[in-house]
Simulated scan of single mutants.
Amino acid sequence: MQPVLTLYTTWGCHLCEQAEQLLLNLGLAGQFQLVDIVDDEAAFARYRVAIPVLRQGDNELYWPFDESQLATWLKDVK
């Protein structure tokens, strides 16, 4: 199954690590991909001061968010 969620992150970002852990806590292992904004020029231009950002299609969830907010957002975008 292809990951449907993208988590924009970068190396050494402790907030990004927290966001990834929230996804794992909700049982979403294998359903998201990590994109390091340093490796993607367009993502860097768009998200460099906003990471972590979770994206599904055209829907984006910007940090800060907690597990409850993430779960609600996921229900809304499906």
Score class of each variant (00 low, 15 high):
residue 48 R to W: 04
residue 57 G to M: 09
residue 75 K to T: 01
residue 37 I to A: 04
residue 41 E to F: 07
residue 42 A to S: 05
residue 78 K to T: 12
residue 31 Q to E: 06
residue 34 L to M: 12
residue 62 Y to I: 14
residue 37 I to E: 04
residue 41 E to S: 14
residue 74 L to Y: 05
residue 60 E to K: 12
residue 33 Q to F: 03
residue 71 A to D: 02
residue 76 D to L: 14
residue 49 V to M: 04
residue 60 E to S: 14
residue 63 W to Q: 10
residue 41 E to V: 09
residue 32 F to Y: 09
residue 74 L to T: 00
residue 27 G to V: 14
residue 33 Q to A: 15
residue 30 G to V: 12
residue 45 A to R: 02
residue 37 I to D: 05
residue 30 G to D: 07
residue 37 I to Q: 01
residue 39 D to Q: 06
residue 59 N to D: 12
residue 50 A to N: 03
residue 52 P to N: 05
residue 67 E to V: 09
residue 35 V to C: 14
residue 46 R to T: 13
residue 37 I to K: 03
residue 32 F to T: 01
residue 27 G to M: 12
residue 42 A to I: 01
residue 55 R to L: 05
residue 76 D to H: 13
residue 75 K to P: 00
residue 48 R to P: 04
residue 44 F to N: 07
residue 71 A to G: 03
residue 65 F to N: 06
residue 71 A to M: 00
residue 64 P to Q: 02
residue 70 L to C: 06
residue 29 A to V: 13
residue 42 A to Q: 02
residue 70 L to G: 06
residue 72 T to G: 05
residue 61 L to A: 12
residue 58 D to A: 06
residue 45 A to Q: 05
residue 78 K to G: 12
residue 58 D to C: 05
residue 28 L to M: 13
residue 63 W to F: 11
residue 56 Q to K: 06
residue 53 V to I: 03
residue 27 G to T: 14
residue 68 S to P: 10
residue 76 D to V: 11
residue 30 G to C: 10
residue 50 A to C: 01
residue 62 Y to H: 14
residue 49 V to T: 10
residue 42 A to R: 04
residue 60 E to R: 10
residue 78 K to L: 15
residue 51 I to S: 06
residue 31 Q to V: 01
residue 27 G to Y: 15
residue 53 V to E: 00
